[in-house]
Design a protein around this nucleic acid. Structure first.
Lengths: 107, 107
DNA sequence: TCGTTGGTTCGACGACTCTCGAACCAAAGC
DNA sequence: GCTTTGGTTCGAGAGTCGTCGAACCAACGA
């Protein structure tokens, strides 16, 4: 399998993070990761094609928001909370709180 | 002059805000507004064409981040801090802090 | 009235994004 | 070996975005 490119903690950029979170689908994924912890790619209840889901997960990964590791045939995705909190303290929590406030029911 | 459309406080959406802040130029404008308060459009030290600056200011306004009022031939732009804090508490401060941390020198 | 100043709007261009089906691939199990 | 499973990658289509010059407009001052 490919190495799954992922930026270093200090290479995470604010516009990159904001761009990654400008899509509602990706915010939804972020919330799922924040509440459920490490998830397999297919575990998200998203009504989108596999290719599209893979695309969104790659955007999140390349923006430095998530970490992906291989586990057999599956990919386990997790939130890079420590790296994000270290680089942009409070930002992740503020975004998650804002998302929760905007759509409390979630999915 | 045209009315300068601007969303109501409760019509501000998170993806809208994130999308507006996914461009470094607009983050720069936001920081200038946060530190200097109300600014005339031309007061920003941006090396971009007038049309481009006008475009970015419109994106910020239509995302609900800024308020624009006419003053003679000028437009005075200000941050909608109260509305933003009411809708997404802590988000604006977290973004501003993140921007400051990423590029401390500012312009 | 006329020119200047400060901004907006109008195409237009290149670049990027989101979406998808189809093809592909690698690991696991039989 | 072969099939299934879980994801990725490719190519393409429609749409959006950032940028700009040129044109336009409204208010002010002389």
């Amino acid at each position: 399998m490919k190495p799954m490119t992922e930026p270093a903690a200090d290479a995470i950029t604010l516009p990159g993070v904001m761009a990654a979170l400008s899509d509602p689908v990706r915010v939804q994924i972020l919330r799922a990761l924040a509440t459920s912890g490490e998830c397999a790619c297919g575990a998200f209840e998203l009504e989108i094609a596999k290719a599209t889901r893979s695309h969104h997960l790659r955007v999140l990964r390349e923006a430095g928001l998530t970490h992906t590791r291989a586990d057999g045939t599956r990919r386990l995705v997790s939130l890079r909370r420590d790296d994000l909190d270290a680089r942009f303290p409070g930002l992740l929590d503020a975004v998650l709180a804002a998302a929760e406030r905007e759509t409390p029911v979630s999915v």
